[in-house]
Structure formats: structure tokens, C-alpha cells
Amino acid sequence: MDWFTEFPELGRRDLRDFRKSIDQGFKDFTRTYGEDIESFFEPLLQFLIWLEKLLLATPWPLFIVAVAALAWFASRSLRVVVGSAVSLFLIGFLGMWEDTMSTVSIIVVCTILCIGLGLPVGIVMSRSDRAQSVVTPILDIMQTIPSFVYLIPVVMLLGIGKVPGLIAVVIYAIPPMIRLTNLGIRLVDKEVLEAADAFGASPWQKLVRVQIPLALPNIFAGVNQTIMMSLAMVVIASMIGVTGLGQPVLKAISNQYLAMGLLNGLAIVALAIIFDRISQSYGKRLQSHRGGQDE
């Protein structure tokens, strides 16, 4: 009855060999293609560095005014404008301006990447049930796998630095963008689509003039989620060399600096709230026609 009480494990040596061969395989892959992959991401790195420098070179009042203007354009709400400006000022006042600019730049690049990659994937997914059944489990894995696990191969491949951090953030933050694009397009009223067909719209005309505009509120919810999730990854990304508000938090953990951790953590929260209110209220304004009131 041995087999009943003892689990039929792989032998210890076999298991070790198994893991070793995977590690070896990936190491070989890294050696062969590592440089090519690195140079592939070079433009991205340059863009990120350029943006970070630009933000850092921007005089602080100009930046606050720009954010306030963006907030006004998106929400037409004085509360959001004043809230954004005051919290940005406080962040700077408490000595976190430079880290905040680094974080903002990586969030912006990450959001652009997520939209650029997620939107087409979501569209493809919405147009074919087969694509949906392939992509959905991949998204499930991306969202549930502990981020440290995919940090390992990314670091093995690209070393420590901004680009691997960016990739890690994108992996974590892109699923809601894809999911909500897919959902939004699938939720478009069947009758409106039938009308488009009846008037002879081509698939492209349907996509651009009917499906995407009508899915926009959902797509915007996806953008909003993506921004929130990439902010949540900032601390973890700082472990592999991404500069920004995450690094002081990391330092605070290892040295038990309570105030430092708290302040930088709150700065991340403040950024999150500013991004959230701006993108959400813009998303809401997009659907003002549904409520029936004048804009």
C-alpha cells in the first residue's frame, strides 16, 4: 500500500535535471538572442529617457499648470483641477518632485504601450471567438502569476534597468485594456450593427465609425484600469532598477524608515487619484449623450 500513502514523486535527481535543463535552455537563448532583443527595445529606452528628461527639465509651475489644464479639459470640474494642483504642489514641497517625474514618465510610456498593443489585440479578440478563447487564458495567467516569477526571465534576458521594469509593468497592466476593449466591442448594440450592414458599411467602416465609438466608454475604463495597475507595479519595478517613487519605498522597507515609506506611498496614491479622476471623468463625458442632457 506504499503507493497509496506516498505521492508518486519524480525522483529528486530527475527533478533537478529537469529544472537544470530548462534553466540551461533559457540561458542559451539569452546568450544567443539577448543582444538582439536589447537593441530591439533600444528606441523604447531612448523615448523613456527623453520623456523623463523633458519632465525633469520642465519648470515645476508649468507642469502643475499643464496637469490642471488637462484636468479641466477632461472633467470640466473645478474640484478635480484644484485637487490635482494642490496635491502636486504638496508632493514637490515634501521633496519628492524628481522621483514623481520619473514615475510619471514611466506610467505615461507604459500607458501608451498598453493602448498601442492592447487596443488591436482587443479588437482582434472581439472579432473572433477563437481568438478570444486563445487570448483569455493568457490574460488570466498574466494577471494571476506572481510578478516576481516573470521578473526572473526578464532580468535574465535584459539585465537590470528601465526596459525590463517597463516590460514587467506592461505585462501586469495590459490585461484590463485588452479585456475591456473586447467587451466594449462585443457589447455594441446588435441592431445598430445590423443597421450599419443594411446601409452597406464595410467591416472597416463598421469598426471605425460604429464599434469603436460605441465601445469608447468601456475602452476608457480599460485605460483607467491600466493606469491604476501600472502605478501599483511601481514599487515592484523599482526592485529591478526603475527609478521613481518606488525606490524610496524599497529603501524604507529595508531600513524601517516609517515616514519615508509613508510619504512616498502617499505620493503614489495622490498620483493614482489624479490620473484616475482625469481619465474617468473624461470617459464619463464621452457618454454624456446617453443621459440626454446637453453638453
Binding site: 445598430v192 443597421a195 446601409f199 464595410s202 449623450h289
Partner: peptide, 22 residues
């Protein structure tokens, strides 16, 4: 040809209007 036919020769009105809300 079908698309051209729908564009130019037959148009349709729907029970629940099927207007573009945006």
C-alpha cells in the same frame, strides 16, 4: 456588389430605430 446594392439601391428603417447614439 452586395455592398453597393445596400448603399445605393435599398435602404432600411428599423423597429427600434437603430440610430447611432453618439
Amino acid at each position: 456588389t452586395l455592398r453597393d446594392f445596400r448603399r445605393n439601391r435599398a435602404s432600411m428603417v428599423f423597429q427600434r430605430f437603430a440610430l447611432l447614439p453618439h
